[in-house]
């Protein structure tokens, strides 16, 4: 265990300090490799298929909607969370929370999302919207 002194790793400048030790660099490499591997695995899982928005409240999947193509009508729905009703709009720009009873309104301010892996979470109201599937695939024919 290192001692409690202040001068254990004394460095002259911020630039020197940014270099870190070999242990620090090894830890950074391990962390980055793990993160990128997880990222690719997740992307491979959720990027397949047409673009869909999934809406959850707590443990429950409430609804799954395809993202409308340009020119198609927008979908607007009211979802009941722990605090009250959140209004969710799904249009050609993606999914967004239009109104929310929460105090911070961070979910509303985060705007519309349309990329696979994006999500909008309103933690106080326990509402989650996740997006999966690629936006491009909605222009392709889907053969069943």
């Amino acid at each position: 265990m290192p001692s409690l002194n202040l001068d254990a790793p004394v460095r002259q400048s911020m630039f020197d300090a940014l270099k870190g030790t070999w242990t620090d660099r090894l830890l950074l490499c391990l962390a980055l490799i793990s993160i990128f591997t997880a990222w690719f695995v997740i992307q491979a899982q959720i990027a397949a298929g047409p673009a869909m928005a999934e809406i959850y409240h707590g443990k429950t999947l409430l609804a799954t909607y395809p993202l409308p193509k340009p020119g198609e009508a927008a979908i607007s729905l009211q979802v009941e969370g722990d605090l009250g009703m959140s209004e969710i709009v799904i249009d050609e720009h993606g999914a967004r929370i239009a109104t929310s009873p929460c105090s911070s309104q961070r979910c509303v301010l985060s705007g519309a999302h349309s990329h696979a892996g994006d999500m909008i979470a309103c933690v106080p109201n326990r509402i989650l919207i996740t997006l999966r599937g690629s936006a491009e695939s909605k222009f392709d024919a889907i053969v069943e």
Binding site: I42, K59, M119
Partner: peptide, 26 residues
């Protein structure tokens, strides 16, 4: 929100954490 789908958003945020953690450490 008891959904594993939450973790889909984690990797890019962890990369930002690497950057901020490294700078804060320095």
């Amino acid at each position: 929100i008891q959904q594993a789908a939450l973790y889909y958003a984690l990797p890019p945020l962890l990369i930002l954490s690497c950057i901020s953690g490294w700078i804060n450490g320095a």
